[in-house]
Design a binder for these strands. Structure first.
Lengths: 250, 250
DNA sequence: TCAAAAGTGTTTGAACTACACCCATGT
DNA sequence: ACATGGGTGTAGTTCAAACACTTTTGA
């Protein structure tokens, strides 16, 4: 850092600093997203991500957890920092840098989120828009390298640059799926192997082989049997639970 | 975001925003790091990462590229955003949030960096300190989850929280090694397969099998033969080059 | 001629794939 | 009984690891 004593931090213009949170959850075998309807300009009436300003005595991770609870009622969820978005004009109100986060909510806790009546500021679960697949995620290639295939410009679904933030979160989730046990964060404490498979398929956007999937989970000891079974319309299914580990890395 | 019109960004205290850059390069089969010696307090005399303040009309990625060139002379290198560090007291001068970046310099461009004589502000290539292995990288587990195995507190090598930043960059580099072709950014345009293997071994910190390594690179068509050979003290080695791709993901 | 690095061939085992098949339950 | 999802067995294939081996150069 450039500095001469006594150092004056005010010599450099300071941006506003916010956090945004992409909350994923499974619902009816589909990946869903928790969004908030904006009640005021800019982007009035548009969906936006939960988020807000970072306070002076907290980390951005703490700010993300706090804003998530304030705006949606969610607490004690998996939360990780994703990427920092800093395009100078990303917010029409002024220079606002936002540190995006990704959160994962187990499917049996969908109702923990305070989803709205019809007031100005309601939260809502929406299925991940398919159009997000067409949005270029941030941070996957060399800045300054040959530009990637251009995709047709689209009408954004979300306020601000939240389309890009969601696309980036999805890319991160997919990338981590193979090497981590992150998927279990979207499942209840006890789950059937088919439920687990649905999570993988929803995130990857394609079918996976049943035998391979089951063997991988059991052989790598990522899951362990429980005594319980889940009963439904058909043959009861064994319930499994994630093997406790120190980190999410396999 | 919390807002009522007309919205006043100044309602919320703004932090200073900086960038820091971890520059990796190979040198004598070892992973090296570009650092700057601090000439003034705090942390006078300590090694620190190149970096500086973000200007109002640039992204953090642009700021990282600019500061890298200003402080070390390096330009046109692979550069990616890494993680945002925001512990409130990470800088004793005040509230400073820093967006860390990682850069990779090909081994034949080591001299592009302006490494110092003996003035107060010289840059230097140093071998990656082994003690970094003992530092917990940021951002790999759930905030709020069971704490990971505690490591003994150590005397930090670097100024500020730069030990953690370097450890995080190393973790990121290792994690990306398998699924990306990032390693080629540390190699010249033409290189021997053994040189490539040395890069992988230096990053992973362990030996890799020669046959498997060569087959993987050729079979996945990550590299292609050139007509040239490199001559040295022993049998000449075929030179290869990276197969051009749109992104670094395999 | 010898040391050292470049490069190849061969065997083994692990793991993914595909597909067929059986099992258990509610209706 | 039968439809449906739960769960298993097997054969083929791919791929990584380990190891021994040959090749090619400079000294």
């Amino acid at each position: 850092m450039t500095d001469h004593p006594p150092f004056d931090l005010a010599r450099f213009e300071k941006p506003s600093l916010t956090v945004d949170v992409v909350v994923f959850a499974m619902r009816e075998s589909q990946l869903h997203l928790l969004v908030i309807e904006r009640g005021i300009p800019p982007f009035e009436g548009r969906w936006a991500l939960p988020g807000g300003f970072v306070l002076p005595r907290e980390t951005v991770e703490q700010a993300a957890a706090r804003e998530l609870e304030e705006e949606t009622g969610l607490k004690d969820v998996y939360l990780e920092q994703l990427y920092t978005f800093s395009t100078p004009d990303r917010d029409p109100r002024g220079r606002v840098v936002s540190v995006a986060h990704m959160a994962l909510l187990p499917m049996d806790r969908l109702d923990d989120a305070v989803v709205g009546g019809s007031d100005a500021r309601r939260a809502e679960w929406i299925a991940l828009p398919e159009a997000i697949e067409k949005v270029e995620p941030a941070g996957l290639v060399t800045p300054g390298a040959r530009p990637r295939k251009k995709r047709e410009p689209r009408e954004p679904h979300f306020a601000f640059d939240h389309d890009v933030i969601v696309a980036t979160a999805l890319a991160r989730l997919r990338g981590k799926l193979e090497s981590t046990t992150l998927a279990f964060e979207l499942l209840p404490a006890q789950f059937t192997l088919t439920e687990a498979q649905r999570v993988y398929e929803a995130i990857l956007g394609r079918a996976v082989d049943k035998v391979t999937f089951r063997r991988r989970l059991t052989q790598l000891e990522l899951v362990e049997e429980t005594a319980e079974m889940r009963r439904g319309a058909h043959r009861p299914a064994r319930l499994y639970q994630a093997v406790p580990r120190d980190s999410h890395w396999i």
